[in-house]
Amino acid sequence: MPGIRELEVSQLRRISGGASRETWAFDATWKEGKARAGRGYILRRDPEASLLETDRDIEFRVYEALQGSGVPVPEVYWLENDPQWLDRPFFVMRRLKGDASTGAVIGDSEAAAIAQEKVEILARIHAFDWKSGGLETLRAPSTAAGSPGVEIAHWERIMREEALEPQPVLEMALAWLKANKPAPQRLTVVHGDYRTGNLLVNGGKISGVLDWEMVHLGDPLEDVAWVCVRSWRWAGDARVGGLLSRDDFYRRYEEASGTTIDRDAVYFWEVLGNLKLATIFLTGARSFVEGRSKDAMHAFTAHLNPDIEAETLRLITDQGGRS
């Protein structure tokens, strides 16, 4: 910040959430000329251990690339890869107004409008021109058709590296996935964790899409299926993301994206979504058991896996003769 004086940092506090990086909020004020200016910031610092090993440069670059795209993301300011300043690398971005907590979002009086906006923003992410947007280096298959295989291999590798004990349910899910790969037609930006809980809402509108740690290029239906994963049905009923029915979600996405959803493909990606979620939690469990993490969240999330595994078994058996 050249040309500023009397910089003061206050209200530094850690915020819960974010699968792979510590999130800290702080305020800063400074003197610029004769006037005093200020702003709220978010600092995302690499953790000692996390639910997921991800590349901070990618997350930072995606935030940069999406500025002005119609996908609401915070403005990013600084990326520091040198650990000498805060022990670990970090980046800093603008703190947007809003609340991402699931209770606040699904209980909002404007929940119906938020649901519609959620669908439209997802379609915008998938329509983003990643080639001219400088995102060719995201993890990607060589062709759209290769994306199921790439994602299966990615999560299988992590599962095998991180599991502390045999995982018969996940092994059977992998076998099912390998036998039921769809043939995607489109290669788009995939957020990878697009769900209620990662959407900042302010005044009945989505003010920010957060947590791009798992962004990659792939089949957009992967995101569509992730929205539908059982674990995100926060309202306790069948509404996906706690906001709208699955059929309604499909219809609105088709309208917003101008594409037709292949239901069988979404089914595949939903099985993969459950495998992925269980694997993320296995990663946290390992870091906790090995003492690399002291975060109780990493121990807690491992206890969410029985529900995810039960859902996975249901999906790979209850599927109209596709076993």
């Binding site: 306790g236 069948a238 206890h303 529900d307 859902e311």
Partner: peptide
């Protein structure tokens, strides 16, 4: 094993 630690969920 422990269930519903995220709260109740609906299938389908």
């Amino acid at each position: 094993l422990p269930h519903d630690m995220m709260g109740p969920r609906s299938d389908g």
